[in-house]
Design a protein around this nucleic acid. Structure first.
Lengths: 207, 207
DNA sequence: AGGCTTATTGGACAAATGTGCAATAGGGCG
DNA sequence: CGCCCTATTGCACATTTGTCCAATAAGCCT
């Protein structure tokens, strides 16, 4: 049985989408070319007609998935006015991500030092997350609504606290609930930036 | 060539030590039975004479390595008197760990949800790290040297901030230096616990 | 309609993997 | 000293992996 013939652009997008599905199911390290082909419903040979190596494929797929999440956060932040509402929107956007997305990040961090392509993407995206935060904090300092000695280090702290807490949620099941991780990270950010307690409380959201 | 015959206890310890060396070099997911045998200098068949599966071996090896680090932290903390010096000792002990040790943690977090044995160990050790911190913080509150609404959530915050910052160091090379991650985490803890800035500054250490 | 580019197939290939097992040999115990 | 338990060997086995390639066919252009 033959797959419908697609343009390289479409097929490549379909490939990445299939790779992503397998990565979410089996983890980055456990993603094989044959599994991706099966997910796609195509022959296994098709994968290497579009991609030189599996490392390249997983790196690109991760870049797409994690890049979309970041983009959503960036636009959500841009839609708000004022540093504090923007920071709240940042947390809301982060909270909107699912556990599978965070598991992908855990895999990426684990493999980053060993897979050059993946490591570059992971680092670049992390720096953009931090940059997004740092911009908000700089605005807050300028407005007078936030206080921080150094926006960059505060941004790294807020981001790392959030990552570190959600990490526990995803890796270890319910040692911490996701809602608790989110609330604790917001509280930590309030302390870090001299905000009144509760300033960043997230909108109650029906999932 | 034959390996010197060892008692099961000794051999098992040697196996774990060899497994650990391979895990540090190739990552948890990339640790194979043959590599462990080669590291040990034995035949590959020996591995399965002592262990039922590779998952069991890596979980046990991780438990030993990470358990030793935790034990060192626990005794280092116990050797100090007063909550603030104890917390400083906690950070010193954490900082004494090398990048390979943290890379092992990244691997463990990544695989925790997929390897039951490894996930249990990882979660248990993380809870003990948090418990160690929570005890220090409770002491600090009792002494009046620290202020925190809830020792447990503060402990999770301090630990997750530290993990999240060091994670960046190990996964992404020098996006943040390890020293910077350490200093920022201490500063964050000072803020979290209402300590004067600089209270937790680490002893200058020659690596 | 006919040809030609190329997307797609299906399998070949070698290397590596976890796991099991019969054979070997070292050393403690009678 | 000699026997027997078992630590250790070395390989077999079936899978699975990434990578590659000749053959096939789909659909666009002239």
């Amino acid at each position: 049985m033959l797959m419908p013939r697609m343009s390289p652009g479409e097929r490549r997008a379909a490939l990445i989408s299939a790779a992503l599905a397998v990565m979410r199911r089996r983890g980055i390290a456990g993603t094989t070319a044959r599994d991706v082909a099966a997910e796609l419903g195509s022959s296994s040979g098709l994968i290497h007609h579009y991609v030189d190596s599996m490392d390249e494929l997983v790196a690109e797929a991760f870049a797409v998935a994690a890049g979309e999440d970041l983009l959503q956060a960036e636009t959500a932040v841009r839609d708000e006015i004022g540093a504090v509402p923007r920071l709240a929107a940042f947390f809301d956007a982060y909270a909107r991500g699912d556990d599978d997305g965070m598991q992908l990040w855990l895999d990426a961090w684990s493999e980053a030092a060993r897979r050059p392509a993946l490591g570059r993407i992971s680092r670049e995206l992390n720096e953009r997350w931090q940059g997004l935060l740092a911009g908000i904090i700089r605005d807050g300092i300028r407005e007078g609504s936030m206080s921080a000695e150094d926006a960059d280090s505060s941004a790294w702290r807020v981001l790392s606290l959030l990552d570190g807490l959600v990490l526990q949620t995803v890796a270890h099941g319910d040692v911490i609930s996701r809602a608790q991780a989110d609330a604790w990270a917001r509280a930590g950010a309030e302390g870090e930036l001299g905000l009144p307690a509760g300033s960043l409380r997230g909108a109650v959201r029906t999932p």
